[in-house]
Write a protein that binds this DNA or RNA. Structure first.
Length: 104
DNA sequence: AGCGTGACACGAC
DNA sequence: GGTCGTGCCACGC
C-alpha cells in the first residue's frame, strides 16, 4: 500500500483547470470517502510552490479555508482568478465551478 | 496508549 | 444564512 499522501497527490492532478473540488471530494477521489480532514492535513503540509494544483481545493461552503489575507490565501485567489474561477465576497459558486464526474 | 488538534463534511436544530 | 455534535484520519505530546 503506497502512502495515502501519494493517493491525494494523484487525485489532485485529475482536477482540470477552471474547476474546483471540496476537501471531501478530493478525499473521495483519492479513495478515502470520509477523510476530508486528512485532505486538509495533506494540503497544509504541501509547500506553496508545489507543482500540484492545491489551489483548486476549497471547503464545502465554497470558501478558502485559510486566514483571509494570508500569503497562501492571496496566492490561491490569484491562481483561481487566473483560471477563470472568480470569487465574490470571499467565496465562489460551487454549483458553477465544482468539478464532478458528470462534467466529462 | 490516551487525548487534543487540524486548510473538513454532514445532519439536526 | 448559523451553531452544535459526531465521524474521520494522521500527528504530536
Amino acid at each position: 500500500m503506497t502512502n495515502k499522501k501519494e493517493q491525494f497527490y494523484l487525485a489532485l492532478q485529475h482536477i482540470p483547470a477552471g474547476f474546483v473540488v471540496t476537501y471531501g471530494d478530493l478525499a473521495q477521489l483519492a479513495g478515502f470517502p470520509k477523510a476530508a480532514r486528512l485532505a486538509g492535513k495533506i494540503l497544509h503540509d504541501l509547500p506553496q510552490d508545489s507543482v500540484l494544483p492545491w489551489h483548486r481545493v476549497v471547503n464545502a461552503s465554497g470558501k478558502i479555508s485559510l486566514p483571509e489575507g494570508s500569503p497562501a490565501y492571496l496566492q490561491q485567489v490569484a491562481r483561481l482568478e487566473a483560471e477563470g474561477v472568480h470569487l465574490s465576497k470571499g467565496k465562489l459558486n460551487l454549483r458553477k465551478f465544482r468539478w464532478h464526474l458528470a462534467c466529462l
